[in-house]
Amino acid sequence: MTQIKKWKLIQSEQLIKDQWADVRKNSYQKNDGSIIEPFYIYGFPDYATAVAITKTGTVIVEKIYRAGLDTIALELPGGCVDTTDTSLSHAIERELLEETGYRFDQIEYLGKISPNPTTNTNVMHMFLAKGGVLDPNAVRDTSEEVEVIEMEWDDFITAFKTQAFIQSMQTCTILYALMRLNKLIV
């Protein structure tokens, strides 16, 4: 049985570095001595997202334009973890309030997943938020054009089953939330 070891980084060249992306062109030596180059590493901020349930039992989702696929997508609320966030819970509370205007009684951490551990350095932190109420004094972030929708639970499950949610990390968040709620569907 082969013992897996990390590759040796030979060289790293910074191609892009700003607040949203850190792209490096690396060269690695594998354990058999062969060289892999170029090998691109993409650094992005960590993300946080939540299945957000109101006090009345509806699920808060968003419609938002996504330029990468040039589509209007149905998504869960969430966004980047900022360097100013004091904790991951603070990050998702801030994102929920900025994007939806809702505050939540309970926020539970469900874990983290990687969008692509082959090339990406970031992770998605998953949450389940319950007991949401609209805060009429919330200051919404207007830099993104987001339509906030309260979906009935059955409509949310139907949207999930019919693959209306296309963001893969968010579909994982939905699955983990369904497991936590003991409502995993077949």
Rank of each mutant, 00 (worst) to 15 (best):
M1T: 00
T2S: 00
T2V: 06
I4D: 00
W7R: 11
L9T: 09
L15Y: 05
L15S: 03
L15A: 05
K17M: 08
K25D: 15
K25I: 15
N26D: 15
N26E: 15
Y28N: 11
N31W: 00
G33P: 03
I41A: 02
Y42I: 05
F44R: 10
A48M: 02
T49I: 04
A50V: 06
A52P: 07
V61Q: 01
K63L: 07
G68A: 04
L69Y: 01
D70A: 06
E75Y: 02
L76C: 03
P77H: 01
V81L: 07
T83C: 03
T86D: 11
S87D: 11
S89A: 12
L97S: 11
E99R: 02
E99I: 02
T100R: 08
F104V: 09
D105H: 10
E108G: 10
E108Q: 15
Y109T: 03
G111T: 09
K112S: 14
N116W: 05
T118V: 11
T121F: 03
T121C: 08
N122Q: 10
V123E: 08
L128T: 04
G131Q: 09
V133C: 13
L134Y: 15
P136W: 15
N137D: 15
A138W: 10
A138G: 15
V139A: 14
T142G: 06
E145M: 09
V146E: 06
I149T: 10
E150H: 15
D154H: 12
D155H: 08
F160H: 09
F160C: 08
K161P: 02
T162C: 10
L175V: 15
M179G: 10
N182M: 10
N182H: 12
K183P: 07
